[in-house]
Design a protein around this nucleic acid. Structure first.
Length: 343
DNA sequence: GGCTCACACT
DNA sequence: TAGTGTGAG
């Protein structure tokens, strides 16, 4: 009612490239004989990352070395406290990615192993009318879509390009429906899911822009593999938050497109920690509330004012506007811009 | 603007 | 872990 509604537009196109187990891959570049063996990188007495062979034996990030060795007795352990070579590989990755997305693209580094790229302009200017969607497409299940719809109704919240305005022009506009049905590469969905996807189509052109972007992502990933020998996972969506979440859906060495009209169905049930800017402290405080706030849907229902109070009680000096930003992100609306020249 | 601190990010 | 980045004051 009196809550400010999130601004939702699908106009941006954001990629997130996330190097798979970055330090471990760097070590395997120097030692190809380790590729098929379980490999962990340690700092002090902690495993900071490990390759996917090691993960099959239950080795995990931030495990104690002791635990890791118990789970995987033949684990190869490399000290990773000298970051020099990782920094060098990281810069090579960034320099390759800078070639993609055209002159108007913006590239932002996050840590050593992640790069955001805003490819809005390139995706708009692409002439291709029926771009092939590369990689995976996230498809919500019907229950998640129903839950998202309920949440939207509860909060009286409508997405900018209306999904229901489409019903009236259903006989004229079958081309978009065919386009999605024919070009997705995920495992073939059942009829219910296909119907669901068609029902949720958006007419702002975001599907085509995201598909064009998925091609840029595929080309960039190929270049990284050929020129450096690294595999990366990639998320393709309309904001940094959604691209990051999408990248995590299929790993390693896969890319995933998340259509903005499916974002709430994905986000609503996820823990509040998926929201960038909402860290360990705030997430813990939210869980202590009664009733406890666990998921993004819980946080969305909580509203801005109670969140402001919690931030004041939890943080030393909460940045202005943080509550509003976090609350909007709980509804999958993230307007944080890709900031160029951060590397 | 520059310093420290708290907090979040990898 | 070993850093980097950000906003508040």
């Amino acid at each position: 009612a009196s809550m400010p509604l999130p601004e939702v537009s699908h106009k941006r196109v954001v990629l997130l490239f996330d190097c798979d187990c970055f330090y471990a891959q760097c070590e395997m570049l120097e030692h190809p004989e380790w590729r098929k063996k379980p490999l962990a990188i340690k700092q002090k007495y902690l495993v900071v990352t490990c390759n996917y062979v090691a993960r099959k034996s239950g080795v995990r990030k931030l495990q104690s070395l002791e635990d890791a060795k118990l789970r995987c007795p033949d684990l190869i352990i490399v000290d990773g406290s000298d970051l020099t070579k990782y920094r060098a590989v990281s810069m090579r990755v960034f320099n390759v990615l800078k070639r993609f997305g055209g002159a108007a693209a913006k590239h932002e580094r996050l840590g050593m192993d992640e790069v955001f790229v805003d490819v809005t302009r390139a995706a708009e200017e692409d002439r291709e009318d029926e771009p092939r969607l590369m990689g995976h497409l996230f498809q919500p299940d019907p229950a998640a879509v129903r839950a998202a719809r309920t949440l939207r109704a509860e909060l009286n919240f409508r997405e900018a390009p209306a999904a229901d305005a489409k019903a009236e022009q259903s006989d004229s506009g079958s081309e978009d429906g065919d386009w999605v049905r024919d070009y997705r590469e995920t495992a073939s969905p059942d009829d219910a899911k296909a119907a669901l996807a068609d029902e949720q189509l958006c007419d702002c052109g975001c599907q085509k822009r995201l598909a064009r972007a998925s091609k840029i992502a595929a080309e960039a990933r190929m270049a990284l593999f050929k020129e450096i020998g690294l595999t990366v996972s990639c998320g393709v969506s309309t904001s940094k938050m959604l691209a990051k979440i999408a990248a995590g859906l299929n790993k390693p060495n896969k890319q995933t497109t998340l259509l903005p009209q499916h974002a709430l169905a994905l986000v609503h049930a996820l823990p509040t920690r998926v929201i960038p800017g909402l860290g360990f402290g705030v997430a813990s405080a939210l869980r202590e509330l009664h009733p406890p706030v666990f998921t993004c849907a819980d946080l969305a229902r909580e509203g801005v004012r109670p969140l402001e109070r919690l931030l004041r009680a939890t943080l030393k000096s909460p940045p202005a506007g943080l509550a509003k930003d976090l609350w909007q992100r709980s509804l999958a609306c993230d307007t944080d811009a890709v900031k160029p020249f951060s590397g």
